[in-house]
Design a binder for these strands. Sequence first.
DNA 1: GTCTATAGCCAGATAGAC
DNA 2: GTCTATCTGGCTATAGAC
Lengths: 207, 207
Amino acid sequence: MSSAPAVKHSFKEQMLQAREDAIVQAALRLLAHKGFETMTVDEVAADVGIAKASLYKHFPSKEELAAAAMLRLLRQAQAFLQGQPADHGPLDKLQAAVRWAMALQLAGDMPALPSRNSSLRAALMAHPACLEALAQIGELLGGWIAAAQQQGRLNPRLSATAVLCILCARACDPALEFLQAGGQLSDADTIELVLGACFEGLSARQP
Amino acid sequence: MSSAPAVKHSFKEQMLQAREDAIVQAALRLLAHKGFETMTVDEVAADVGIAKASLYKHFPSKEELAAAAMLRLLRQAQAFLQGQPADHGPLDKLQAAVRWAMALQLAGDMPALPSRNSSLRAALMAHPACLEALAQIGELLGGWIAAAQQQGRLNPRLSATAVLCILCARACDPALEFLQAGGQLSDADTIELVLGACFEGLSARQP
DNA sequence: GTCTATAGCCAGATAGAC
DNA sequence: GTCTATCTGGCTATAGAC
């Protein structure tokens, strides 16, 4: 992180960093496909092409490894959100965010939410970096929600917190998987359908 | 199942049936609280107060046990749905069904959906009774959805299948847990909030 | 059918050479 | 830091007495 000398990182350090990146990436992939409990450290190591013991030189435990993977995902989400054009409306940016997450899930690259008793959740909550990333994402989305409500585009009877919770839940909406299993729709159509139902509701409008 | 003699079931058989019920109930509880992978057969046995080997006399494997527990839940859902008053409107019955499932989840008694690669899902799909119960629930709800659409109460642009998928997903909506963790609302208020957002949408009505 | 005891296996984590 | 080989513990499932 300190950058006083012009070239601080040697080749070796770069290689190490790259390897660590590969490990985290593989862990994220497996986490999304199999879940924390089912995923094994052996699989992650095999996916990267190194021995399990080498992996344990980088991460002290399976939980820490998974937490690093989740942090990577949070950072990707942050990057996507911050990359939203400033001239877009807040509602458009919110919908773009949900679309991004839904596409991830349909591709099978979105890990399931860690359940209440999962050791993964404890590891996440113990990681300051994860908590900070979560908080920053929450603040960013919260600002857009408030702005959209002020524009009269979102239901004003819902608190910003409630909208935030619901949007986060929709990002992992299992309805996507159900519809995809039916096989009638393209992925893009599936996303638009579920997104539309989320914002417009299931009931008929103008009663 | 055959009932030719007046009293076919002896006391012993009744006791066995009761014990098996207790096992399934305990399994369902633990399945909801901990998930299939984290739950151990020892815990189920301890919860019932019997030895693990005795449990294996009733169920040949952990998967079969969990499948029996899920079947119990499906039957409870079926009973609730069939108990809906016939003079209620289809939309009211649909909302009542979602409310029932949401209350279950807030109480911590709703198991998470088995993920794609879970051995539990395979066990469920291999159980004719589970598939049949699922199909019957789907048909019942599907009928109500079609009726509600004919009444103009549900968005006609959504296919009945899509509505069904979305309602099933809402029955396990993680937004409930997020809002409950915030601790601002009572359980009943949380349910009405999420239910309202599901049917009315997040966007402001009458733009 | 219920128990105690144990087999068999698998996955997380470590030792120690290089 | 990377490897091979191993330890350790816990979990599913079973054997065998009663």
